[in-house]
């Protein structure tokens, strides 16, 4: 796996020398296929049904995508380090129910406090995953499969049959996912800010770049002096924070939160990251790609409804998309490997 396609065009020009121009670098961007697919989808759907891109249509589209986008960004962080976190759906459920409980039992609690508490709870749950993975040295797939069950079970026993509805929450909290600024819902703007922060961290901060090195080759990263355990733990913790944020936003967006909130979300989140060009084997991809992947997957649902395709086809199409993303990723990495071999042969 090479990280060359993930660096921005400017940087790549510097590292590749004169051999590849700006256009070449742009064409090799991992986000490109998914972005093109999204644009094509939106254009075709709009031609078929002009109402699709109406302000209300846009708003629904973004609202539906926001929560999966945040989760996919967190998941991308973890997958880039060659790990995976299957417990995000359960973390989201716990935090969403916690949010409902807070609002119902502590009248007049400031909304900001709820956000902070939700993200702290998420951080705590994510850190448990991270500690188990790094200290006990057990693969993340196994650990987070276990915590998926444990967190969900805690949620079930905590909630029982209780559900909190939108009426239990202050109006200002609910209006976060109703009010818009320039046509963008507020929670989507929150998500965009978060994605931007994580993207900058991953591209410009040393600790963020380390995640790519760890995912490409953990042993080499260790030899290179990167504190692998600490970085991986941090990725899990960040993912927990983002899942916590998504949980709070979920409580704002949807009418009811209860024991089963967020069940089965984990695989669609991983799928969104994979569709967005984050290689499941670690070391490549970007959070922007993952976010676009999430947007694409949710847009398909709305697009199929808009062009009146049988709604039952939706999931099958999502499946085909994931498979094509994996195949495109393979083609891209084979080509990069060939190019690297040729350029190395020239240098010798």
């Amino acid at each position: 796996m090479t990280i060359a396609p993930t660096v921005p065009p400017g940087q790549s020009e510097r590292t590749d020398g004169a051999r590849s121009g700006r256009l070449g670098a742009l064409l090799r961007l991992r986000e490109l296929p998914v972005t093109l697919a999204l644009i094509a989808l939106v254009v075709i759907t709009t031609i078929a049904n002009p109402l699709f891109l109406s302000p209300q249509g846009m708003k629904d589209l973004l609202l539906n995508a926001t929560i999966v986008m945040i989760l996919a960004v967190g998941q991308a962080l973890v997958i880039i380090t060659r790990n995976v976190d299957l417990s995000v759906g359960s973390i989201l459920g716990l935090v969403a129910f916690g949010t409902g409980t807070l609002f119902a039992n502590v009248p007049g609690i400031p909304i900001v406090v709820v956000f902070v508490v939700g993200m702290l709870l998420g951080a705590f749950l994510g850190a448990i995953n991270g500690i188990l993975v790094t200290v006990a040295k057990v693969p993340a797939l196994v650990i987070t499969l276990g915590t998926l069950y444990i967190y969900r079970g805690i949620n079930n026993s905590w909630a029982g049959g209780t559900q909190y509805f939108a009426g239990d929450r202050p109006e200002a909290f609910g209006s976060l996912s109703v009010d818009t600024v320039f046509g963008f819902p507020l929670i989507t703007l929150i998500a965009v800010v978060v994605i931007a922060i994580v993207a900058i961290y991953l591209n410009g901060v040393r600790a963020g770049r380390d995640l790519y090195a760890i995912g490409s080759d953990p042993d080499a990263a260790l030899l290179f002096g990167i504190p692998v355990s600490r970085r991986v733990l941090l990725a899990f913790l960040f993912n927990g924070v983002l899942a916590g944020l998504a949980g709070v936003l979920y409580a704002s967006r949807f009418n009811s939160v209860g024991a089963t909130t967020g069940t089965g979300l984990e695989l669609s989140v991983v799928a969104a990251a994979v569709v967005g060009g984050v290689a499941i084997s670690g070391g490549s991809g970007s959070v922007v790609g993952a976010a676009i992947g999430a947007l694409l997957l949710t847009t398909i649902t709305s697009a199929l409804t808009a062009v009146r395709v049988d709604k039952f086809w939706q999931q099958a199409i999502v499946g085909m998309l994931i498979l094509s993303a994996v195949i495109i990723d393979r083609i891209a990495s084979v080509r990069t490997a060939r190019k690297l071999r040729i350029s190395e042969a020239r240098d010798v």
Partner: peptide, 30 residues
């Protein structure tokens, strides 16, 4: 075929077919 012949990672492929086969089940029976 996708995993052994094409050589794609099994985790990613089977997440894809997880959605695909469940989707086909929906197509078949609604």
């Amino acid at each position: 075929f996708l995993i052994a012949v094409v050589g794609l990672p099994s985790l990613a492929v089977t997440i894809g077919t997880l959605a695909l086969y469940r989707g086909l089940a929906l197509v078949v029976i609604g």
